[in-house]
């Protein structure tokens, strides 16, 4: 991954689609699949991850000249774990219902490889402004991916969207979609669509050039 010649805008935009953390890099699978059974849970998990990623990138980037190379991973983990503990307490205080539903998966944001990956690959090597742009881009990309999965699962599995029924009473919900297998299937099919589009585009480019 080249980190030298990025313009600010490019750093922000690349996380949304071209280097989307979920669909392209396949990082952070565990929360992606575990808590995306409804759109609201997806949004809560994505916001929590966004928060942690943003502040970890800020601190890692600020401290990048202070942190000794030998203990950098441990330092990153301590920084990340601090913000995860914060977000865990914040959610418990603000939205206890959602916090209860997400349970231990909030704490598991610590081991989301997306966050540690961005610290190692980007924040530790770049100025604060650029590191924050990258965190925002990747955080939004993660949010988009989680919401896409959550929306598909909630509509098919429950006939509703953000708890509002949209498919009517005659719709027989596909219970499997809100259960664990539904997570695997939804992400599998979304990746399939993603790959197909990417391949079409590559083929079209090859013909025109």
């Amino acid at each position: 991954m080249g980190v030298d010649q990025h313009t600010d805008w490019d750093v922000l935009i690349k996380g949304l689609w071209r280097e989307n953390p979920v669909f392209v890099a396949v990082l952070g699978m565990c929360p992606t699949l575990a808590v995306t059974n409804t759109a609201i849970n997806s949004l809560a998990m994505a916001s929590a991850t966004f928060f942690v990623l943003f502040f970890s990138s800020l601190f890692v980037s600020l401290l990048r000249k202070v942190i000794a190379k030998e203990v950098r991973i441990t330092t990153y983990i301590v920084i990340i774990a601090t913000f995860v503990s914060l977000v865990d307490m914040l959610l418990a205080a603000l939205v206890p219902d959602i916090h209860k539903e997400l349970g231990a998966f909030i704490a598991l944001i610590v081991v989301n490889c997306l966050i540690l990956g961005r610290q190692e690959a980007f924040a530790a090597k770049n100025k604060v402004g650029l590191a924050l742009m990258d965190a925002i881009g990747m955080g939004l990309g993660f949010t988009i991916a989680l919401l896409m999965i959550g929306i598909v699962r909630e509509i098919l599995g429950n006939g509703s969207l953000f708890d509002i029924p949209i498919l009517g009473a005659s719709f027989e919900p596909w219970i499997i979609m809100i259960l664990p297998p539904g997570g695997f299937f939804t992400l599998g099919f979304l990746l399939l669509i993603f790959n197909t589009v990417a391949q079409r585009r590559a083929r079209a480019n090859a013909i025109t050039s």
């Binding site: 499997i176 299937f185 599998g188 099919f189 399939l192 790959n195 197909t196």
Partner: peptide, 19 residues
Amino acid sequence: PDSVKGTALSLIIAGILSM
């Protein structure tokens, strides 16, 4: 098919195992 190869296929297999 090429577009199914890799992670997409693994995820669908995992879904069936999970079921």
